[in-house]
Structure formats: C-alpha cells, structure tokens
Design a protein around this nucleic acid. Structure first.
Lengths: 214, 214, 214, 214
DNA sequence: CATGAATGAGAGTTCATTCAT
DNA sequence: AATGAATGAACTCTCATTCAT
C-alpha cells in the first residue's frame, strides 16, 4: 500500500481553504467586505456556513487569507526575468506589464487591488501588508527596470518612482475598473488596440524611441 | 422690515442636507457604504440619528444624494474653458487636469470616485448615473481637447478614447489612492514635482513637443 | 359691544378638541391604536403635530378622550323614552334598537365598539370604564325593557341579562363588522330587509306575538 | 436500524413553526398586531428573537401564518356532519353551533376572529382570505342547514343569509368578547344556562317548535 | 469532518414627545 | 396659540458566530 497516495477526500480537504478563499474573493470584490455574507460565500463554495469556521477563525481572517493568497505567485518569476533581461529595458517593460495584466490584472486575483482600495480604511494593517508585499515588491521591480533604462540612456531621466506611477497606473486603473464599473457577467474584454496605444504612450512618455508601427 | 431675513433655525434647516451629505461622504469614503453606521454619520454632523430621516428617506437615499451632489459643480465651468481655448490644446489640457485635481480630485468630493469604484457592484444604477453624469461628461471634454490637438497636429493621431484614458487615469488613480491607501489624517500632499513629471509624461505620450525644462 | 359674541377664532378654538378627537376616532377605528400615527391624526384634522399636545397630554390621553366623548350623548335621551313608554315593551324595544343603530351603531361613533374590543387588552381601565359607562348603562336599559316585557307577559320568562345579549348582540356584531371587515369607502349600507328580519327574529326569540307582516 | 427515528432536535424543528404561531396568536389576540413585540413572541415560545426569522420572513408573514393555521381544522368535519344529518335541521344546528363553540370559539384559536376584526383595516387581503376561507365556508354551512329547515317547514321562511347572521352573531360576539373585554386569566367560562337560553332563543327566532323545557 | 439550527448584539428605521421660534 | 425641526427610545430585521448533532 502506498501511503503517499491521497484519497479524493484528502485532496478535497487540502484544497478546501483555497476553494473557500476563491469564493470569498469573488464576493468580496463584487460587494465589498461588509456587504458580503458568509452564507453566500459558503453557498458559492458549496459548503455549509459552519464549515467556513473549520478553516478560518473569523470573517476578518478570511479576508486576510484572501489577500495573502493573491500575493505570492507572480513576483518571483518576474524578478527572475528582470535579472535575465536587464539590458533590454523596453522589451522587459513590455513583458512585465503584459505578464501582470494577463496573469493577474485581468484575472479574478486582480480584483484584490480594487478590494484593497475599497477596504484600506477598514483594514489598515492588511493594507500596509498589501502595500509592502504586492505594491512594494512589484513597484520596486518596475522602478529597477526604469532606472536601468535611464542609466542606459534609453529612457529620459526623471524620478523613477514617479515615472513608475505614470507607467503603471493606467493599467492598474484599467484593472480596477474592470472589477467594478466595467464588470460584466463575463468580464468585458479590453478593446483590441489597447495595448498598442498603451505601450506606445508610455514609451513616448518615457522618452524612448518608439518603433515605427509600420 | 426686511422680509428676506431668515431665522437662525431656518438657515440651519436649509444648510442641513448639505451638512449631512458632507458628513456621510467622509465616512462612506473612509469605510464604504455598508460599514458606515448612520449613528456615526449623525454624530459627525452633530445631530441625532432620527434627524437624518427628516432629510433622507433611507441610507441608500443618502448615498445617492452624496453621489449626486458631487456631480455638478465643476463641469459647466470647464466646458466654458474648452470653448474659449480650443486653439491651445496643450494649455487647455494642463488647465483642465490641474483644475480637476485642485478643485475635485484632491478634495473630499474626489472621494466619490473611490467610493463609486468600491460600491459599483452594489448600486449598479447609481454607478451608471455616475458614469454618465461625471465620467461621461468629463471624459467627453477631455476627448474633445485631445481630438482638437490631433486635428491641429499638436498631438499624434490615435483613438481619442484610449488616449484620454492614458492621460487621465494616472491622475484618477492618484486621487483614488489618496482617498484609500494613502489617506492620512490630513490627506498626504502630492510629492512636489508630481505635476511636472505628470505633464511631461503625458505630453510626450501624446507626441507633443515638450518644452525644454531648462 | 357684546362680550358674549365669540370670534371665529374662538369658536374654532373651542371646537378644536372635538375636531381632533373626531380625526383620531376615525383613524383609531380604521387602524387600531398602535398603528395610528399622530402625524396622520394631525394631518386629518388639518393641524400640525405639535398642536395635538396643546389639547391632549399624550397619545393615550387622546385615546381616552375619544372613548369618553362617544359615551354620553345618547343614553340620557333613551332613558327618558324608557320612562315614557314602559308599558309598551315591544314598541320600546324597536325604538331603542333603531335609535341605537341610526344614531350610534351606524355612525363613526359606533366605531368605538370595535375599537374597544380591539384595544381592551392594552387599556383595561379604559375598557372597564367603557364597560360601565356605555355597555353597562345601555345594557341596563335594555334589561329593564325586557324585564318589563316579561313582567307584563309580553315576553317569555328567562334571564334578562342573557336575553339582552341575544337581542342586542346581532346588532352590535353588525356594527362592528361594518367598521372592520365590511368597511367600505362610504360604509356599506345594510341590506334593505335587515331590520324586518332582525325584529321579527328577536321578537320571536323573546316569545312575543309577531304581527303578521301582511 | 430504524430510519424513521427522528432526533430530538429534528422533532423540535418540525414543531417549531406551530409553537411560534401559537405564541404569536396569543399575543396578537391580547394586544393586537402592532402592539405585539417580536421579542415577546420569542420569549413566550422560549426561543431567541432571531429564531423567529428562521421560520417566518417577517412579522407580517407570521401574522398571516397565524391566521391561516386557524382556518382549516374544523370545517371538513362539520361539512361531513351536515351531509349526514340533513334531515334533522334542529339537531344539526345545535350540534354545529356547539361544536364551533367548544372546538373553536372558546379556544385560543377563536381569538383569530377578534384579531381579524381588529386588523382588517391594516391587512385587507388577509381579511379577504379569512372572510372567504373561514367566514365564507362556515357561513355557507349554516345557510345550508337553515335552508334545509325552511324547505322542510321546520323553520319559518326568510333570507337564509340574514337568518344565518341572526343565529350565529350572538355566539360570535360572545367569542369575541371573551377574547377582549371579558378575557380573564383563564378565560371566563360562560354562565351556566347560556346555551339553553341561546338555543331556545334562536329556535324561537327561526319559528321552530321549541320543546317544552319541563 | 461537516452541518445548520440557534443565538444575540447591532444596525436601519419609526414615531411619540419636546421646545425654540 | 401654533408650528415643525429635532430627539432618542424602541422596534424590526440581519448576520457573524457557536455548538449539539
């Protein structure tokens, strides 16, 4: 008998917290923390309300878990790419921003940004954590790329932090809007030429030579 | 005898709705709709809870009033400026965006943007109204300026709607952040050179000739 | 100058309590004591809410006044008739019951019966008063008539109190129903032959010789 | 193993709605709908306030349930008796009215009549339902008996509907009074010879030959 | 582990009552 | 005398949390 095998029940059991957190994320993003009922979270996850308390001590703990789970996955990978491509800032920037959008901003996980914006006032410590772990590391990454570009003379000079905001905030705003005002049943897709215009705009804004689109 | 005289009580009564809405706005922005207790709104406005119901039918009506009151003030004025300065797109753009920030984005009223982003899911009809009355008119204004710039050859060509987002979203994101994660007791001020960098960035992004800062 | 003349204002002032009580009666009967708002009473009487408190100390005082005012008017008159017609029990009974219906049971004042039935549990002392002053005196009157009839051999013998109930309760029930389930906008009128059937029934019930209707 | 066994919890759960409705009925009858607090209903039923909402959506729903539950039990049985005894109208009438009193009018359930009289103005649709389901069917039953008696020549001729009122209203009025003005801690019992006098009275009123009580 | 009936503190709302005008 | 804006206690209803099963 192989004791490393996991029964379907066990697999289920291990996956539970993530399933519950996913259900909670969707509802927290849609309605906000206070307006989300644990009944609905449980229903969406297909369990009873009491089950939630087997995995999370309280509604607030569930909220923290939702935020924390959204944090890790992407950044290590991106940091590796930055190491590898440090001499091609334009390419690197495109790649990072595209990756962020495709793998985070446009996914349910991207909803955490809207959620944290909305709940920062009620959970200052969670917001601080989010700021550090997500915004901070990710922002540092972008700043490094921009700095590298400046050093290499590819981008114009300027405050890397401010330039980072100019570069990133249109995309972040877009993600937030897609999870609030523009939220459709299936998540409205971005208009086709969005990324063309976006990269063209920020590269111009950074003073980079813009490749002729022809 | 002066028949226009108003008793202090009357003066108070006329000012009440605005006072209440201001108190509500502050708390809605800080905590969100559901997490704000009417007790606290009343306390902040210095009245009893029952008084709220003399002026607003329900918590939801108060929310609507808060949003609706934030809508009007600025736009007519801005539209007039657009008429007057149509031949100077760069100056017009700087003026509009500066005005928006100083008179709206950086004020408590600017909190409505964060608030609507957070509550759009719970109040789709209010969000639709806000979209039309605020985002829509203001967005149309910016688009017109950008189009005028393109027509005049001052700005590069492109989708006016997408360019409007590129231009406006950094500032909007900044306003939202100042009302959430960056909210300090007195509203953290923007770092000094923010606007220099911002205008430089977006004008480059629009392909405008950027005046040498030296 | 004639100091006995009363200004229209004064006349109004003296009539006020009765006007207010009439408005209150109508609403108390329609909705019950607890479900009637003083706002509505005031509105129906055409005065402001505060004015009510110039004439009545509290909602409960208003309720008591409403009941008390309905008590007096009729009974003295009826008692006089009983004295005068003591030797004609059948005629007297018809007259009393008809008078009660026309001057009380079918009028707004008759609503007090329904009202007291509904509120007896909440105002035991008022109910006791009503019982004594209205039901009691009126009941005694009817009992005397019935007793007189028995003594004269016109009615069969039996408990005068129980016979009084048999005689009076169909009419009382009718009045109560007209002020509740059967209450129409204009007060549904009794079906035409009601009184024919009614008197025929109770006189038979009392063992009186019923005149041939032909 | 007996799969039909029910845990004590389950048994409780199934009985709950009826327990709650019984508690509510008692208080509604005693105080009226508006003056009854759900706290008190819950306390009387030995549960917490929130529990009420597990079984009834609102106070109004509880009211409706109370009325609806009082409707069914008796009438089917009575209808069967009417079929069986159609040729003995006098005996049938006595039986029906006695049954109504013993099994309904004198029990807590009989309080619904007083309750509906009191609340008809506030719940016209419930009143309409009550009228149809209770008053209507029961009234039709009595009318049929009276008609049968008239056809057989046992009762004098006349409008069955009006005669039904004459016959039934003294008893109904008695029930209502026992649940309001005459309500004692244990429900005052009727005076001993009430039913003798009552049947004697209505049978005479109907023109039936009254058996010599001697 | 999982359930869901039960809880009770807390929020929105109403309305009798007060009092400055 | 009359008003009606303001109050705050009390009510209905909600929902995070608990715990017997």
């Amino acid at each position: 008998m192989d004791f490393t095998e996991t029964s379907s029940r066990q697999r289920r059991k291990e996956a539970r917290p993530a399933e519950l957190a996913a259900a909670a994320l969707a509802l927290f993003v849609e309605r906000g923390f206070a307006a989300t009922r644990l009944d609905d979270v449980a229903a969406r996850a297909g369990v009873s309300k009491g089950t939630l308390y087997l995995y999370f001590d309280s509604k607030e703990a569930l909220f923290r878990a939702v935020i924390e789970e959204s944090v890790l996955p992407l950044i290590d990978e991106c940091e590796a790419r930055v190491e590898a491509l440090q001499d091609q800032p334009v390419r690197l920037l495109r790649e990072l921003l595209t990756t962020w959008w495709v793998r985070f901003g446009a996914t349910p996980l991207g909803g955490t940004c809207k959620l944290m914006v909305a709940e920062a006032g009620n959970f200052p410590d969670v917001a601080a954590y989010f700021n550090e772990a997500v915004i901070g590391r990710w922002g540092a990454l972008l700043r490094r790329v921009i700095e590298a570009g400046i050093v290499r003379g590819v981008f114009r000079s300027g405050s890397p932090e401010l330039l980072r905001q100019m570069v990133f905030h249109p995309l972040l705003m877009q993600s937030i809007l897609q999870h609030s005002m523009l939220a459709g049943p299936a998540g409205r897709p971005l208009p086709e030429p969005y990324f063309d215009t976006y990269f063209d705009f920020i590269l111009r804004g950074l003073g980079a030579a813009v490749p002729d689109p022809s």
